[in-house]
Simulated scan of single mutants.
Amino acid sequence: MKKHKGNKKAQLLTIIIFGIIAIFSAYFGKDIISTNVGTPTGVLEISYLDVGQGDAAYIRVNDFDILIDAGPKSDSDKLMKQLEEKNIDDFEIVIATHPHEDHIGGMTKVFEKYDVESFYMPKATNTTKTFENMMKAVSNEGLNANVIKEGTSFELGEGARIDVYSPIQESYDDLNDYSPIMKLTYGNKAFIFTGDAEKVVEEEVVKKYANELKADVIKFGHHGSSTSSTKEFIEAISPKYGIISCGVDNSYGHPHKETLKIIDEMGIEAYRTDKQGQITITSDGNNIEIKTQAI
């Protein structure tokens, strides 16, 4: 009899516990799902490639090889050399942030050499030969261009996820503003990618997602131009490290003194491809290590 009562008590306790869990999940489930990407079991690698006055970043995480932009055509051989050194078999994801030549000039060579499983770009076009060649390369691969925009996300295996916060609007006056602002989360560390998104988009993203932008590393927008990197945007991210992708003695004067002033005022440890070449970050989800290539 006592044993029977004990079983009933145990069953009742189990029901109560699961009831509490159910109630907790009902109220807080969304927050739990959005912040928990699991525990990393490997090492994340991000290489901000040296492609002169342009942009290109390579990500290796779990079983995913990802390329964000491909620099200008003039530095496409330099891009390919850096990629070849990484022993990449194929790319699971390739992203073109926007259709400017300094971000997509090397895409044709990437598609010629590597198998690409999926290609993403914002809903923006250009009339240039470079853009036309990229789209032909995508078509020759047997792919369609998937639209990347606010709300797009990529699950990248245990501990890893990319969330996309922009573009928010259907159209912008400047092609730069179609650039997706993205956050790669790996365990307890996070990394922001910006393409060439300028102040108008930064303001939109801060207004809507200020509480989600905190990250350890930012790739500064538009090569460190004063048209990007508003103080409010950088403060919302509060990064420890910053990356600027730009060319040596470039004609635009990138990075601009306004951006460098914000970097200095916030005590951000900044790295530049024009001064240090390829910049590679590795992380186990709790720690970050940064290595640069001497020019």
Rank of each mutant, 00 (worst) to 15 (best):
L49G: 01
L49P: 03
L49E: 02
D50M: 09
D50V: 06
D50P: 06
D50I: 04
D50F: 03
D50N: 15
V51N: 02
G52T: 01
G52N: 04
G52V: 00
G52Q: 01
G52P: 01
G52D: 00
Q53V: 04
Q53G: 02
Q53C: 02
Q53H: 11
Q53E: 12
G54K: 01
D55M: 11
D55Y: 04
D55W: 10
A56K: 05
A56L: 05
A57N: 11
A57Q: 11
A57F: 06
A57M: 12
A57C: 14
A57I: 09
Y58R: 02
Y58S: 06
Y58C: 07
Y58D: 04
Y58H: 08
Y58E: 01
Y58T: 02
Y58N: 00
I59T: 09
I59P: 00
I59L: 11
I59Q: 01
I59D: 03
I59W: 04
R60F: 06
V61D: 05
V61G: 04
V61A: 02
N62Y: 07
N62R: 06
N62S: 10
D63W: 02
D63L: 08
F64P: 02
F64Y: 15
F64Q: 13
F64S: 10
D65M: 03
D65H: 13
D65A: 14
D65L: 04
D65G: 05
D65W: 04
L67D: 09
L67N: 05
L67Y: 03
L67W: 00
I68C: 07
I68T: 00
D69N: 15
A70F: 07
A70V: 07
G71M: 09
G71Y: 02
P72Y: 05
K73P: 02
K73N: 12
K73T: 12
K73D: 11
K73V: 10
S74C: 07
S74E: 13
S74W: 05
S74F: 01
S74M: 11
S74L: 11
S74V: 09
S74Q: 14
D75K: 00
D75W: 01
D75C: 06
S76M: 09
S76V: 10
S76R: 06
S76I: 06
D77L: 14
D77Y: 12
D77S: 14
D77V: 10
K78C: 07
K78L: 14
K78D: 13
L79R: 07
L79E: 08
L79D: 08
M80D: 03
M80C: 11
M80R: 09
K81T: 15
K81G: 10
K81D: 14
K81N: 14
K81I: 15
Q82T: 11
Q82I: 12
